[in-house]
Design a protein around this nucleic acid. Structure first.
Lengths: 197, 197
DNA sequence: ATTATATAGTAGACCGTTCGTTTATTTAAA
DNA sequence: TTTAAATAAACGAACGGTCTACTATATAAT
């Protein structure tokens, strides 16, 4: 009798939802990916919706670890830390052939308009991530390398929402170009220009 | 025996997909919205996929009309025309309680990674729209009101992708704030600052 | 130490409903 | 009458969820 690790279930489920979306990922797909019987799924989760809300929390944890790591490298300026963070994500999407989206971005578009608890879970994650990023933006503003006529939290939201928009386009074009443009346009816009002489 | 207008079917289908997404919109939902029997659906469309590709083309036509109208008002500067265009869209989403997304944005995120013909149809529309918008951006660059260190077509893509990102967030937060931020941050970034004497 | 009970997890059949599609039939137009 | 358009009904597969039976392990009682 096989036993299953809940984290493995969540992670396999996240992969599937990132690739196929929520409604196009059936419970059976997740079961197959985990080699698990259906009864076990309902032992761990109340419903498909409960599953995805738990998956969102797990995703927040996974990405949250990277987030802290990427942004805490003291050898880089604050702007360069932020850029590094997004570059690492761009690399990941490139390695996945531009077919896989961000869990939260997928769910935002697909179900946030219709399933309120999912909408609320995503909102909470975005709020915490934005605040986290904003604290680094604020330091960049204090050091004079990031524009400061716009509030740091707003700039953090600007970056997250814009990146999600770029991810959607990446999937359409099956190309990393929208992500590169994010780095070179969207991100570059928040960099303060050094006025020469 | 009722007869059905294909444009009505497409428009009702578009509404449903914008609200519920592709996989969560069944053929029956569309039939019900049109008061049409199932056999008739397959008389008009080869498959669900064929339907949505036709819906994309129809959507392009609908929005394309507004697009030309919004951007051709000679009494406004080019930048203000572009802003007017997006303001009109922001108003529409507001009137729909922030629950409805953009057809192309929804499909980009939900199926563009998995259904190639849909991905290609969307890509074509975005390409044409971006070129259309870029021609106005270019004029704004020539008049000196829009920044010109970035190619007009890239700026057009920047605006479209960013707006889609903002729409996704709007659905999560059930708020027009992300859209307002798009106008006041994303769009404002392309405006050339008048350097005071 | 042994036995009994509780708990956690597994397994898979079943349920009612829905899915997109196809086939057969009916209706309308030429 | 024939052809084209539209409809109705059936098809096979799949959906999320429920339920019953079973297994393995941990805990409690003797």
């Amino acid at each position: 009798m096989a036993k299953h690790d809940i984290n493995n279930i969540l992670e396999k489920g996240i992969e599937l939802v990132r690739l196929n979306g929520y409604h196009n990922t059936g419970i059976r797909d997740i079961l197959k990916a985990c080699g698990m019987p259906k009864g076990s799924f309902y032992h761990f989760f109340e419903s498909k919706e409960d599953f995805v809300i738990r998956a969102i929390a797990h995703f927040e944890e996974l990405i949250g670890k990277d987030f802290k790591k990427n942004l805490s490298d003291d050898s880089l300026s604050y702007y360069d830390r932020i850029r590094r963070h997004f570059e690492i994500h761009v690399k990941w999407y490139t390695e996945n052939d531009y077919k896989v989206g961000c869990l939260l971005g997928n769910l935002s578009t697909e179900v946030a308009g219709t399933i309120d608890p999912v909408s609320q879970a995503i909102s909470g994650v975005y709020d915490r991530w934005s605040r986290g990023l904003a604290s680094f933006i604020e330091k960049g503003q204090q050091e004079g390398e990031i524009i400061d006529h716009i509030d740091a939290l707003q700039l953090a939201n600007y970056l997250f929402d814009s990146f999600n928009g770029a991810l959607g386009r990446m999937k359409v074009e099956r190309s990393g170009q929208p992500l590169d443009h994010f780095l070179d346009i969207n991100l570059a816009f928040i960099k303060k220009e050094k006025i020469a002489g």
